[in-house]
């Protein structure tokens, strides 16, 4: 009695036919997947996310410096130095300074002085970036590394 436990034996001709179909299918799917691998780069062709923002001793309390090349704003206070990204967390436009903090020209996101969202579509606050000191005494900003808001760098 054929059933799930004792199925009908598959005729050899059918088996070879099915095997052929499956082999062709696997080969085509495999090569498509292999080709899909190509467009995703292994090495990203871009400059390092770390850059020197100037000599550390330039940043005396009260100094505010906007680096337009890297779209980062550096603020020096009594507590230390902080760097904040000026790239809008909504869709990547560059925010401009306004009376209440920062405004995005593309879709109208609004941020306060510390980068908190106070209006518009931005899903999160402007990130504060990690700072460090290079051997030659310059201040290094790492755009790829975020620090919690309110964490100041003290040399």
């Amino acid at each position: 009695m054929p059933g799930r436990l004792e199925p009908d034996p598959l005729p050899r001709r059918d088996f070879l036919g099915l095997a052929g179909w499956w082999a062709a299918g696997v080969a085509i799917i495999g090569s498509v997947l292999g080709m899909a691998r190509l467009p995703k780069p292994r090495v990203l062709p871009e400059a390092s996310a770390r850059f020197r923002a100037g000599k550390l001793d330039e940043f005396t309390p009260g100094v505010v410096k906007t680096d337009h090349e890297h779209n980062v704003r550096l603020v020096a206070t009594e507590d230390g130095i902080a760097a904040m990204s000026l790239v809008c967390t909504h869709l990547g436009c560059i925010v401009g300074e306004s009376s209440e903090g920062f405004l995005c020209p593309c879709h109208g996101s609004r941020f306060d002085q510390d980068g908190n969202v106070i209006g518009g579509p931005a899903p999160r606050s402007l990130p504060w970036l990690a700072l460090s000191q290079a051997a030659d005494g310059s201040l290094v900003v790492d755009k790829g590394k975020e620090v919690p808001q309110g964490e100041f760098f003290v040399a």
Partner: peptide, 13 residues
């Protein structure tokens, strides 16, 4: 985004 730009920022790729 990486598939579209070939990088993480907009450029030649």
């Amino acid at each position: 985004k990486e598939l579209l730009l070939g990088a993480s920022t907009v450029g030649q790729e």
